[in-house]
Each structure stands twice: as C-alpha cells, then as structure tokens.
Design a protein around this nucleic acid. Sequence first.
DNA 1: TTGTATGCGTTATCAG
DNA 2: CTGATAACGCATACAA
Lengths: 344, 344
Amino acid sequence: MEEHKHVTIYDIAEKLNLATSTISRALKDHHTISDKTIKKVKQTAKEMGFVPNTLAAGLRGNKSRTIGVLIPTITQPFLSSLISGIEIAAQKSEYSVLIMQSHDSYETEVDLAKSLYSNRVSGVICSLAMETKDTSHFQQFSNNNIPLVFVDRVPRDYDTFRVVINNYLAGYKATKHLIEQGCRRIAHLTAGSEFGTLYNERKRGYVDALLEHELLVDEDLIISLKEMTYEDGVKACNKLFDLKSRPDGLFAPGDILAVSAVQTAKKRGIKIPEDFAVIGFNNDPISEIIEPNISTITHPAEKMGKAAAELIIKNLKSAKEEVDAKEITFLNTQVLIRESSKRI
Amino acid sequence: MEEHKHVTIYDIAEKLNLATSTISRALKDHHTISDKTIKKVKQTAKEMGFVPNTLAAGLRGNKSRTIGVLIPTITQPFLSSLISGIEIAAQKSEYSVLIMQSHDSYETEVDLAKSLYSNRVSGVICSLAMETKDTSHFQQFSNNNIPLVFVDRVPRDYDTFRVVINNYLAGYKATKHLIEQGCRRIAHLTAGSEFGTLYNERKRGYVDALLEHELLVDEDLIISLKEMTYEDGVKACNKLFDLKSRPDGLFAPGDILAVSAVQTAKKRGIKIPEDFAVIGFNNDPISEIIEPNISTITHPAEKMGKAAAELIIKNLKSAKEEVDAKEITFLNTQVLIRESSKRI
DNA sequence: TTGTATGCGTTATCAG
DNA sequence: CTGATAACGCATACAA
C-alpha cells in the first residue's frame, strides 16, 4: 500500500513550476516545446510514476485508441487467429483491443454494438453472427465516422471496408482440384442465411467448377447445414453415404466438416481418397494431424486480422473527408493438397 | 450521414427542461427520482438515440467497467477458451474485456501491464509469460486496489487472487493411471522457468506417483523443453525412443506434446498403447480426433475464465477494505481415459 | 517557447 | 423529489 492517488500532469506541473499544457505537450514531443523542457518533463514524469489516463484523453478527444472486435466466438481457430492478427497490429500502433462475442445471436450483436459505441471505440472490426440479416445496428458507427471493417462473414450490402478472401474462387479451386483428381460426383455442404455471402460464394464456385467441366449439379449432393459443427457434419455425411448413387468426393467449406466426413467414411469402410476424396477449408491445426491428413484451402486468418486493424488505423490517421467508395481487401487462398484428396 | 454529434444527457435535460443530474439519476433508476420522470427520461433518451459515454463515466468514477486480460497468446485452445469464459461472465455483468498478448515476452508483458493501467481497467486477469521471473510490474494494480487474478501460469509468490487447478494432483493422477495400466518406465516432458509453478507441480505429482508405487525415477526419462511445441515434442520423443531402455509410457503436460509422441511412435512402429501408453493434458479438440485418440487431463478452461472474471466483479462490488488473504480457487481436473492409454 | 482558460460527458455532493 | 455545481485528467485555442 504505497501511493494511492494517481499521478497526473497537474502534479508534474506543480513540481516543475510549469503549466499543465506544457506538460501535456512535452509528453508528446510537441514541436513548440524546447528539448530541454521535454527532457526534464519526461524525466520527472518517470520519477513520479506518471501513467497517462487514457480515459481522460479519450473523453477530451472523443476517441479512445481502442479497436472494438465483434465476432461470433473466439474459440474457433480461424477467429482466434484473426484476433491475434488484430491485436498484433493494434499493439504496434499502441491501440487497445476490446473483444466481444455475439455467439451467433443477432440480439446479442445489437447489444454489443451499442456497448462498443458506448465505449467510444475508434474503430470496429466485425464478423457477422449467423443469425444476422439486418445491419442497421452498425449505422451508429458509419454515421459518426467510426471506421467499420467487416471481415470474413460480411453483409451483402453495406458500403464500408471489407477484408475477405475470394470465396467464389476458393470454392472453384477446391472443386476443380477434386475434379482433376478424377472425382465426378462431388458433394458439397453449405450453411447459413442467404444474407451473408460467404457460403453462397463458395457454393457458387463449386457449381461453376462442375458446370465448366460438364458435370451434373446434383441437388442431392448439396446439403445445407444448420450449424457448422462436427455433429451436423456426421449427419450430413451419413445421408450422403446412404444415397443410392454415392458421391466420390466432397468439398466441405470448413475443416471440422471435412474431419467429420473422413471419420464417417472410415467407420463405413469407405477408402479415402480412393473411393471418396475430401477437401476442407481453413487449414485448422486439426487438418494436418488427422489421418489421412486433409487437403484444405488455406485461409490467411492472422493476415486478415492485421489487414483489418491496419485499415482502421490508417483511416483514422488520414481522418479527412474520405471518399465514399470503401476499400475491399482480398487476401489470397491456396489449395493445400494432402492425403485426403491425392489420387494421382 | 445523419446526426454527427453524440447525444448527451445535457441534450436530454434541455429538451425535458430538467437538470443533467436528474437525467443521470433517472437513467440509473435512482430511488429519489419519481417513476414518472424516470419513464419520461428513458423514453426521450431512446428517442434521441442517447448512448452513454463510458469514457466520461469512467473518468468521473475512476473506473472503466473493463477487465484487462494479459496472456501469452490467444491462439492456444486452452487460452481462447479461457478468454471465452471471461468474456461471457463479463458480458453478463456489463463489463468489457480488453485483450493483450505478451507472446511470452517479459518486456512486452511489462509494457502491456502499463497500458492496462493506463486504460484504468477495473481489474486484471493474467497468465504469465514464459520468460517472466519478476512480477513487480503488477504492483501498480495491487497498490491501487485494482483486483488482480492470476490464472494457470501463476507466480510463485504474490499475494493476490489465483484461479488454478491442482497441478500436483493432476500430474499425480495422470501418472498413477499409467501405472495402473501396467507402465513401469514412464517418461515425462516438462518445461518452463523455475519461477512459475505450473509444470513443476505436474512434475512433482509425477514423481510422487512413481515413488508411491516404488518405481524408479529415471532422470533420462524426464526431458525439459524450451517450448511446448509440436516440433520440440517430436525431438524429445525421438530422444526417448533412442534410449537403450525405452520408456513404456509418457505423461505429457500438454496435448500437443502427446500428439507428437503418438505420431512419432507410430512412425517408428511402436504400438500404442501396448508398447507405449500416452496421456496428455488439457483435452484440446485435437486429442479426441487423432487416432488413437488420446487420454488426457481435462482442464476446465472456460470455467476458469468465468471464475476469474467473477472474482473480479464480486470483489469490485464489495470494494471494502478487503482482507489481505487472497482467495485461491481450485477447479477440478479429471482423467479422461481414451485409446492411447487403455491397456486393460 | 510557455501559460491561461475552457470543455469533453458524467456523477457525486450539497442544497433546495 | 429535483437542481446547481464541481470535479475527474487531459488537450486544445488563444494569448502572451
């Protein structure tokens, strides 16, 4: 129990017989302050154990040097990598990161958006909840010039920043890869509302790859899931394997689903990749551990996080009347070929 | 581009011809305000789109309703679950969560601690960086009555809250389980500085279980790792398997290490669990996917997060002159027996 | 180069 | 039950 009162610039000013404004400026290397004073101020600040109060600074300047992150959940490998990227970029520029989980609930997302606004975050990075079909709760940011970046699960129409991969192309590439390996009846799992674009785009790529190779698009082979969970994946795969005319390949838009497919197939004695080739999505750690290890689409999660954070920080710096056309950042995906789909 | 200025209680006061203090109180259902006024105020607040400014409130009251979380990294399953638990508990009590990653660097941890303090967080939850051997950078919290909870990787001596599992007992139980399965030469991987207690405790449990069953504690079978990574695990296991007198079991204090052991063994044609039984730690998702799936110690990560957050929130409420003896919360672990160690 | 004065939005204290 | 006012710590416009 030492000092119990916070040291303020006022305390420093008193000790040095200077004005608080001088202290404030000196601490930020303002050019109108003499080097000598700057040095002296910083020195005593350290001696007195001064730590700036960001709340006060934030209130004054109406910005908090904080980036708000609103995502479904942080326990998915993809999303925790995303956050990690955000945090690294933020830390570099001395921003803090406020994290909130919507748990895929629309209502929670609305509440949390308000809470972020309440915290006067400098910018917001969001990946939408599955349930979300309306984005009016983000208008409060747009209306107040708070940069807003949607990542991964982005809304169909909203004029703001986006950091995404080309899901269409990724779906196309994944499917094409299976075709090249000799698959002719390729199944696909999909999910989500029609509002988000993510899974729709992957499916569109899948369909186009089939068409381009003059393969039948069989609706029986396309199953729409409620949730992207292991359990739902198992159910769907069992349905697929029960089909009279079984698929010989699967493009799963997530590695957990690919894992469920591989395990379900193994349980039924279906050989992978000979009888059934599988490709997943995301390159989750699990995909390279399971046997056979799973081909996948690499998803640059951490890079996306960094890009999103940098977009906000950059935008905050220039803070001018920005143009209305918002940047869309596409990051690259790649087909990572592993055992589960390597037939040739 | 609608309204560009934030609505404040002052705006509401003006519109309603009331004092700002009345508005402030009405908004928080203060008992000295008439129900009629409360209703009216809340109504117009909503109409005008009022959102409280937590920075101002925080500055005024010198607390921000924010919990600071300082951990090595968020991408480990255990830690992302921990954060998830923290966030859920915080959300319930309308706290926000500020996340920072030390990346196991002492220096970064020191900087970030200052940054949390600068943000005037209401409380701090920390799991120490591997490098950390000194905790004086946490004194700023203790000195200012900011509740501080160490989780999982806790310092040896620091009189503050802790949320931990009984690592000694868990190590003991894991080892005992292997002994009961017939193992006689059980290897162990360990790690970390002597400063933290976590791995030391697990090792202590391991040693005691051996002694209790009159088994030799063979230093050749205990390997200390620099990092708890897959690669280091593989190296260590190869060393173990090269031993003249090979181990017949392994207690790995982390599932990634157990995975590396299983895979290294398989590559060498060593049968699991017959020739080599393995038990891991944490119950990471991967442990139940890999084949053979891996026995492990369940680590209640999310519960620990919740407990830590609740400890802070509870403590903040009572905010009296608290006793100096700080609570230690132990959460339960269990041996989860799967294929990798089931011999009988 | 430094100082003075004021306000950011809220809440607590003290009056009425 | 409600109002006036000060204060939280900092940063800026304006003065000197």
